[in-house]
Design a protein around this nucleic acid. Sequence first.
DNA 1: TCTTCATACCTATCGCTAATATGTATTTGA
DNA 2: TCAAATACATATTAGCGATAGGTATGAAGA
Lengths: 109, 109
Amino acid sequence: MGANPSFMAGVPELLVLRLLQDREMYGYEIVAAIAAATGRVVAPKEGVIYPLLHDLQKEGLLRAEARPAGGRTRVYYTLTSRGVRRLFDLTDHWTQLHNAVARTLREGI
Amino acid sequence: MGANPSFMAGVPELLVLRLLQDREMYGYEIVAAIAAATGRVVAPKEGVIYPLLHDLQKEGLLRAEARPAGGRTRVYYTLTSRGVRRLFDLTDHWTQLHNAVARTLREGI
DNA sequence: TCTTCATACCTATCGCTAATATGTATTTGA
DNA sequence: TCAAATACATATTAGCGATAGGTATGAAGA
């Protein structure tokens, strides 16, 4: 029941792709980075990010590499070229949608 | 499978409330108005809007009034005061979320 | 030493919401 | 007369975030 729309659909995917555009990161790091970058406005937990990373990898948008770091095993993710293209597409889509909604909120009909 | 995030979650509700802020409207009219106002960037069909209107009414955010118009029966919706409050809350939430995402897309970490 | 906390990974289940696909009836226009 | 537009409705599906667990290691402190 439309109690509290979160406007979140697709946002974690978009932000993960964007963060990985700058540098490789591992999952646990991404969880903290999203919260930090958005001032905790967006703060998806591991239960959202890990399955998402796995899906994006299966789609060929990310490459995963398990590597020991700090005596611990981390799984580092990097963008593939298809991942970069997807990031551009999603960014366009998101921007277009935002502009349409923002204008409607401002001006109504 | 994260094929194509639509970024749509909550958007129909937000736009319905916003359109009804200006004037009363009936369902079929709202469907067309959302598509027109957003340049068809957002264009939810009746299958989305009608159930949403019913839910919002059940929540006390909208008042519904069936009225004959043009030889046909139309169900006109108006915002209640709770609906107005909800519109303000959602608009705030949407703006805050947008700003956080936009900044992250621009600046990354 | 023992214990707690942070790190780092994982998955199963739930609930919400948009999308799709129909269905009915009336009115308008070709 | 026939098709398309108008105007309402609902049932089903699917996607995705949210929640709530669970495992294991390393570091820090009592």
